[in-house]
Amino acid sequence: MSCWQTLQDYGLRSIGIGERLLPRSDFTLCEHFVLIGSGMIWNIYFGVLALITGFFLATALAVAKASPHKWVRKPAEWFIFLFRGSPLFIQFFFAYFFFLSLKSQYAFFSPFTAAWLGALIVLFLNTAAYSGEIFYGALRSVPRGDAEAADAYGMSGWPRFRRIIWPTMLRLAWPAYTNEAIFLFHATTLVFFSGFPAWQQRGDALYYASYFADKTFNPFIPYPILAMYFILFTLVIVTVFGLVNKRLNRHLPTERRTRLRFRPNLLR
């Protein structure tokens, strides 16, 4: 079987298009590459959607945590502590069984027990908590002069936040936020190992890599391929976020710009 044929059969296997049965023996290198690459679709799906949705909640959390009102600040602090203080792995398990018990009472919750929605929600809340903390730190280091200038122009409330505070906060937070994005992307590999079932063997990249490793007892081929894919996508993230960083810093003289540093935050 040619590699082109394999690509047609398994290229979209992880979302259920193509050959139904996974290869069972005589694995070729091509099959390794195609199937693990196909699994990356899920990693990208989870990573991108959680990041985009999490961004908004994170901003809200940061503002809430910086609020002088106790009733606004405390919930935000607790939310961030809850999600940053416990392992994502346990959060996945808990959420899965939580949705499972809800499902047994209300049929409405049945899509929540599937990875595409349930795990996405956990990742969304989790990344919101981590980014919220980053944004909160940045919010506190917004130069006082910027806020005073806004006051002097008679800005207050929403326009003051939207046009002065928020862009500076983003600019200051961006390097750390880039790392958070990489970190989240790496964390998406946990999804199918933590309760959420891979329906019809539609899993992510690590799911297929461990499938190969289990079948061949040879970890030296699938895992380095997986590593290669991840390093590749990490570079893509760094490039995209680098462009945004450039735009956020465009008004500053070169030496005052915040630099991006590749510094992933390990695992959660």
Binding site: H186, A187, L206, F220, Y223, L226, A227, I231, T234
Partner: peptide
């Protein structure tokens, strides 16, 4: 550099088999 660039969970799963072997 290598350990930091790759999802850690992949490392965990790799090393356990690799070390054993």
């Amino acid at each position: 550099a290598i350990v930091r660039g790759v999802p850690d969970i992949a490392f965990f799963m790799f090393f356990v088999i690799a070390l054993d072997q």
